[in-house]
Simulated scan of single mutants.
Amino acid sequence: MHVLVAGAGWLGAALCEALVARGDRVTAVRRDPARAAELSRLGASPLALDLAAPGAAARLPAGLDAVLACQAASGDGEAPYRRAYLDANRTLLEAAARCGARAFVYTGSTGVFGQRDGSDVDEATPPAPASAAAEVLVAAEALVRSLGAAARVVRLSGLYGPGRTGLVERVRAGALALGPDDGAWMNFCHRADAVSAVLAALDRGAPGAVYHASDAGPAPRREVVRFVAERLGIEPARRDAPAAGANRRVLAERTRAALGLALAFPTFREGLAPLLAQAGGR
């Protein structure tokens, strides 16, 4: 296939590498020309393009069989989210429709769920956005699904993996700590498993389906903090103020069954172990 990977950054580059390895032709899009050029080493054809800019669709290649929309916002808040997830997706959808692409996979976010009561959410749970930015994420899903049968949405939980060790550093610095509300659920997905989920949705996803790329072991924040702190050989920090953010357990059993997925990293423990070793832990 000729696959366009839009937003070929940390996750998108890994998708490019996997697609090239299996024999697909890949066009990889990034805004920054220097970073786009780096993608040629993966065997992809780089294209430096701001997908939210007027006329961007005309610069996308013809003959696309599929689009993987992995672009990320350049900042927090409603305006950057609109550019990345609405404006850029409109460009991509225009190109996909023009080419008659058979699949359009959008990597959304479990951030569409703003529940704070610790409840379970799965692929059939209606979104409950808790901010203007989250409302944009919900609108982006609806926009993508308006394409029809070719569309699939893969909602990603908190991504981590090689080169992304922010979770470990937040515990080390005390930014992620024990204290009020430390029973709130944290949900993760290792990059390797995210790649598998996106490719499975591309290859055998159902028309218009919504999937979850989230591991099998959501955990209370206190478990995550204690696990990381113990392996770093430090005492976990404590804070008196409750942490902001959602509190819901993201389930993905339906996705794994529907797409026939086996997780390489079933929980954060397996996934963080090599990253902790590199960070000086045990």
Rank of each mutant, 00 (worst) to 15 (best):
L259V: 10
R59I: 07
A58C: 09
A134N: 12
N247Q: 08
A103G: 07
L92M: 10
A79H: 06
R22Y: 10
A52R: 03
I234Q: 01
N187Y: 02
A175D: 14
D240G: 11
A134D: 12
E270T: 14
A246D: 03
A8C: 13
A14F: 06
R204Q: 08
A213L: 05
L263N: 09
D181V: 05
E141V: 03
A13T: 14
R30W: 08
V195F: 10
L276I: 00
L178N: 15
A252G: 09
A56F: 09
A103I: 10
S146M: 11
G108S: 09
L64E: 02
E94L: 09
A66H: 05
R221V: 12
G271Q: 05
A192H: 15
D50C: 02
V225K: 03
W10Y: 05
P207S: 11
L275T: 13
G9W: 15
S119A: 04
A173C: 09
R30Q: 07
G118V: 06
R226A: 02
L60H: 04
E230V: 05
E17Q: 07
L199K: 12
L159D: 00
A13R: 12
V5G: 03
G245R: 13
S119P: 07
A142P: 08
G179A: 05
C16T: 09
F113Q: 00
R249D: 01
A241C: 06
Y85W: 06
W185P: 06
R231W: 14
G55W: 12
L276H: 01
R248V: 03
R22C: 08
G217D: 02
V121G: 00
A229T: 03
A8N: 05
